[in-house]
Amino acid sequence: MNRYAALLRGIMPTNPNMKNDKLRAVFEGLGFEKVATLLSSGNVVFRCADTDVPELEARIQEALNRELGIPGGTIIRSYEELRALLDRDPFEGLAHQRGSYLTVTFFKDPEPQAEPPELVDELTRIIGYDKPSRAFLTVIDNSTPQTTNFMAWLDKTYGKDITTRTWLTIQKIVKKLEA
Score class of each variant (00 low, 15 high):
P110V: 11
T105D: 10
Q61S: 13
R3L: 12
D89H: 03
D109P: 06
R165T: 05
E118H: 06
E33Q: 12
T138A: 11
D155A: 15
K176Y: 07
T124W: 03
N65Q: 14
S100R: 02
R66P: 09
L86N: 00
F106E: 00
T105W: 06
I70V: 14
N65C: 10
D50N: 12
L68T: 05
I162F: 03
L94S: 01
S40D: 12
Y79N: 06
Q61D: 08
S100I: 00
T124E: 02
R77L: 01
N20I: 07
Y129P: 05
V45L: 02
K22V: 10
I11C: 09
Q113E: 15
V174Y: 02
K176M: 14
A152R: 14
R77F: 02
E111K: 14
R47E: 15
L85H: 00
V53A: 06
V104W: 04
T169R: 02
L38Q: 10
Y79T: 07
T169A: 09
K160Q: 13
K108T: 07
G93I: 00
N2M: 12
I127Q: 04
K160I: 10
L38D: 05
S133E: 02
F107L: 08
M1S: 15
A36Q: 15
W153Q: 05
P54S: 09
K131Y: 03
S143R: 04
D50L: 11
P110F: 07
E55A: 15
Q61V: 06
R165W: 01
T51F: 09
E67V: 05
G29T: 09
D50F: 08
V35R: 10
G42Y: 00
R88I: 05
L85C: 02
E57W: 04
D89V: 02
V45F: 05
A25W: 11
A135W: 00
D87A: 12
A179I: 13
N65E: 13
N20L: 10
A5D: 04
L137E: 02
D87N: 13
N43M: 07
A152Q: 15
P132S: 08
F46R: 03
D130V: 02
E178V: 10
E33P: 03
E118P: 01
R59Y: 11
P110S: 13
I76A: 01
G128I: 08
S78I: 03
A25T: 08
F27N: 05
L168M: 07
I170P: 00
M12I: 09
P117E: 07
I76D: 02
Y158H: 10
F107I: 00
D52Q: 09
Y101E: 03
T74K: 01
K19I: 06
T14E: 13
F27Q: 05
I173R: 02
V44C: 04
T37W: 08
L56F: 12
A5L: 09
N65K: 14
A95I: 08
D161V: 00
F150H: 05
T163F: 07
M12A: 14
W167P: 01
T37H: 04
I170L: 08
